[in-house]
């Protein structure tokens, strides 16, 4: 196995220099999620105005996969509509479980190698679960932190 199949340059870059990291002062939704296998936590703050994600930040500690995935996700959805954000989260999760993706995942497709490792899929999807929950409060089945 080649480790580079998982840890592509883009992933290491987003892990070392995460985009949109931190918290927002007045989020319209804020979600905390826990990865029970490792104890890692993520907090996702979003500002939604007129059906658009106008600002988004994530905070927390985690492995390179979870941090890079969160960082790429925030870049991908910022400035896009809630419907587009939800579609991206859904497509990304499908992509990691080996189903064809309906959306152009952009940089997130660099996480493809993770799909070979079921234990790491949870790391990669944590931020996307948080996004779904932040944008759609009916997603109550996700592992809520609080």
């Amino acid at each position: 196995m080649n480790l580079d199949d998982i840890y592509r340059e883009t992933i290491l870059d987003h892990n070392q220099i995460p985009r949109n990291k931190g918290t927002l002062p007045n989020p319209t939704a804020s979600v905390g999620l826990l990865n029970p296998t490792c104890g890692d936590q993520i907090r996702l703050d979003v500002v939604v105005a007129d059906g658009k994600i106008t600002d988004i930040r994530f905070d927390g500690q985690g492995c390179a996969i979870s941090m890079a995935s969160a960082s790429m996700m925030t870049e991908a959805v910022k400035g896009h509509s809630v419907a587009e954000g939800l579609a991206l989260a859904r497509s990304f999760k499908a992509f990691l479980t080996g189903r064809p993706s309906e959306e152009d995942l952009g940089e997130l497709s660099a996480l493809e190698g993770v799909s070979q490792f079921p234990s790491r899929v949870k790391c990669a999807t944590l931020a996307h679960n948080a996004l779904e929950k932040a944008l759609d409060p009916s997603k109550a089945d996700l592992d809520a932190l609080d």
Binding site: M1, L3, C38, Q61, C63, I65
Partner: peptide, 13 residues
């Protein structure tokens, strides 16, 4: 600077 899950993944390789 390296998360333990990434450490374990690198070790597995």
């Amino acid at each position: 600077g390296v998360h333990p899950h990434d450490v374990a993944q690198a070790f597995d390789a």
